[in-house]
């Protein structure tokens, strides 16, 4: 029997919707576990990233921690996959790109309604925001893309199944959605 492929996942500037969709594979997760073993992922809560065959990233890059995680995944994963609208084109978080970061922080933390003792949070635990939100392929090489907000559990399963068993990638019409 072939050794199982190691797969790691992370959510950058996303909403964890793609990870929820991953869980939405339901009992097919058992089939997936026949083909892969999980490394770092919110599903195992493992924090360290070992060298992996496949990295699966949800969300765009909005802060310094996102950037560092993306670079680490690119370094440690043979194949890097961008999954979901935010990873592909920045998605909803990138709608802030129309505004100045200073103005956004001021609106949220200084001038917003009902704020007491208003101040812009500054703590080592909170990663600093980048000026703009960027999709993954603008920063590192991405090997595969899977659109959707989120892609359905069926779509993710089909995609991974084709990839893991060396079949040509093809999504039927009802599996290709940007919303």
């Amino acid at each position: 029997m072939m050794a199982k492929l190691r797969i790691a996942t992370a959510s950058l500037a996303g909403c964890f919707g793609c990870h929820m969709a991953l869980l939405d594979m339901d009992e097919r997760l058992l089939d997936l576990l026949e083909l892969v073993e999980f490394d770092r992922t919110p599903l195992t809560d493992q924090k360290e990233l070992q060298p992996c065959d496949i990295g699966l990233l949800e969300g765009g890059v909005a802060n310094e921690d996102n950037l560092a995680t993306l670079k680490l995944f690119r370094q440690q994963c043979k194949i890097l996959i961008a999954i979901g609208a935010c990873a592909l084109n920045g998605g909803i978080p990138a709608m802030r790109n129309s505004f100045d970061l200073k103005d956004i922080l001021a609106e949220s933390y200084l001038n917003g309604m009902g704020l007491a003792n208003s101040q812009i949070p500054q703590d080592a635990e909170i990663p600093a925001l980048l000026n703009h939100v960027q999709p993954l392929h603008e920063i590192v090489k991405i090997d595969y893309f899977l659109p959707g907000c989120p892609p359905s559990g069926e779509t993710i399963w089909l995609f991974l199944q084709q990839l893991l068993t060396g079949q040509p990638l093809h999504l039927p019409y009802h599996c290709l959605h940007y919303d």
Binding site: N89, H137, I142, P147, L176, Y178, D179
Partner: peptide, 18 residues
């Protein structure tokens, strides 16, 4: 969007202008 589905546009390929 529908045309992008029709030609199976999977990747963004270019950098976004925003």
């Amino acid at each position: 969007q529908a045309l992008a589905y029709a030609v199976e546009m999977i990747s963004p390929r270019f950098a976004h202008f925003y």
